[in-house]
Simulated assay, not measured.
Amino acid sequence: MSQEVDNIQPSYPLFRTDEYKENLANKREAYEERHPQETIDEVFQWTTSQEYKELNFNREALTVNPAKACQPLGAVLCALGFEKTLPYVHGSQGCVAYFRTYFNRHFKEPIACVSDSMTEDAAVFGGQKNMFAGLENAKALYKPDMIAVSTT
Rank of each mutant, 00 (worst) to 15 (best):
I40V: 15
N56P: 00
T63C: 01
L80V: 09
C78N: 13
L62S: 01
Q45R: 14
P72G: 02
Q45C: 03
T63V: 14
W46C: 00
E42N: 07
P66F: 04
I40R: 07
K53G: 02
V43K: 04
K53A: 13
L73C: 04
L77E: 13
F57Y: 04
P72W: 08
A75W: 04
E54R: 09
E60H: 11
V76G: 03
N65V: 09
T47C: 11
V76T: 10
P72Y: 03
N58T: 09
G81Y: 03
V76F: 07
W46K: 14
V64L: 15
G74K: 12
Q45Y: 06
I40N: 06
E51N: 04
S49P: 06
D41Y: 06
R59K: 15
Q50S: 06
L55P: 00
L55T: 02
A67T: 15
L55N: 08
L62K: 13
A75D: 15
T63N: 04
F44M: 04
G74T: 01
K53L: 11
W46M: 11
K68N: 09
F57C: 05
Y52S: 09
E54K: 13
A79H: 12
T48A: 00
T48N: 11
Q71C: 03
G74N: 12
K53M: 10
D41E: 14
E60T: 14
W46H: 08
A67L: 04
D41T: 10
K68V: 13
G81H: 03
T63D: 02
L80C: 12
Q50P: 03
P66W: 01
P72A: 07
E60V: 12
P66V: 10
A61Q: 07
D41S: 09
A75G: 08
Y52Q: 01
P72L: 03
Q71I: 13
V64I: 15
V43M: 06
Q45K: 15
G81C: 09
P66N: 12
Q45N: 14
P72F: 01
V43P: 00
